Amino acid sequence: MNKERYLLIGPVSMDRIVRRNSTESRVGGAVYYYSRLLSHLGVDHTAVVTLSEADRRLLGEFPSNTNIIPLYRDSTVEFENIYDNGDTSRRIQRSNFASNPIEIGDIETIAREEWTAVLAGPLLPSDIPLETLEFLGKRHRLYTGLQGYLRYPAGDMVRLKFRKKIPRVLEAGSGAFLDINELRAVSSDIMGAIGILSEHCGEVIVTCGPRGSLISHKGSLIRIMAVTAERELDPTGLGDTYMAAYVHMRRTSDPEAAGNFASLMATRKLEGKI
């Protein structure tokens, strides 16, 4: 396949962002931020997303060159992201925990097409069932944002824990992404947690906010420095931006070069340039 084409899959969310003295409501979800980065780079991409038909206006927030395939469900997933004292690397989350699974039958036709890679962006464990993930991984290079599979409800609060099916989630694809706080749900021993995940996946990427990122690849650990931001304007979606940039660059580059590029793109997102 000569032309790059990426398939993005996951829910659209309605996000409420709380930072110091400001509150803002906006469209969200990993797939939304993947699409913004790929659009910024001028790369062809298609997004298969779930949301309520009553919230179809949210689709108008996607870049104009994103090909969107909506799957309408009863309700749209909602998140409230509270950044503690303005710290962009720490947040408190609440959700309505809407259940909007994307089944194999929903994507079977489009999965027959050729894709450079598939980026899976679940926000909750129910978003992309394991069977759907494995179906996609058998046919394509699959990269998965692990955060959704680690989340569980404590009332309306979002908590994290390592679930029994995580090894199969990892084994379904070529690479997995998560942040340092999510990694601690695997083990408080950071290096031990990376080792646990790496037993089931050849490429594990951990974003660490202002401390950069870590890439485990075939037994080697690569440290990527963060790119200093001129100003911190838009912190939501940084990990998703990093993931899309990394996967795009990884097609032609080694993990270190891909990580450095992804770090730069994440900083541009933080600065409000993407």
Results as ranks from 00 to 15, higher is better:
I9S: 07
A266N: 06
E232I: 15
Y34T: 05
L51C: 04
V12D: 04
V49Y: 13
S75G: 01
G173K: 14
N21D: 13
L150W: 10
V48R: 04
A226R: 00
Q93Y: 02
A47D: 04
D234E: 15
I68K: 06
L71E: 00
S253A: 15
I69V: 15
P153T: 03
I82G: 05
P11K: 11
E203L: 15
L136T: 02
I9F: 01
P129I: 05
S75C: 06
E4P: 05
S13I: 04
E103R: 14
L119D: 03
L160I: 00
M1C: 00
L59H: 03
N260T: 01
N100R: 09
T132Q: 09
V31F: 04
V206K: 07
N96M: 02
A98T: 15
N96D: 06
R5N: 12
K273A: 09
Q147I: 06
Y152K: 08
F162G: 06
F62Y: 14
Y246W: 14
Q147L: 12
S95C: 10
N81Q: 06
L214Y: 10
G237H: 10
W115A: 11
V169Q: 12
M14F: 12
V186K: 04
S126N: 10
D254A: 14
M225C: 03
V204W: 09
A98P: 02
D240F: 08
K3S: 11
S213V: 12
A266Q: 00
T236W: 07
R20Y: 01
V118N: 09
N65A: 00
K3I: 04
S213C: 14
R139S: 08
G155P: 09
L264H: 06
Q93F: 12
S174A: 11
R36C: 08
D44K: 12
A117F: 06
D254G: 15
T207A: 04
L8K: 07
E271V: 11
L130S: 05
R168P: 04
E24C: 11
G175H: 07
L123D: 08
G175K: 13
Y34A: 01
W115Q: 08
A54T: 06
A176T: 13
R231H: 14
R250F: 04
A185V: 05
T252V: 12
Y143G: 03
G29I: 08
E24F: 13
A54F: 01
P210N: 11
T144H: 02
G272R: 03
S174Y: 06
K161Q: 01
P125W: 08
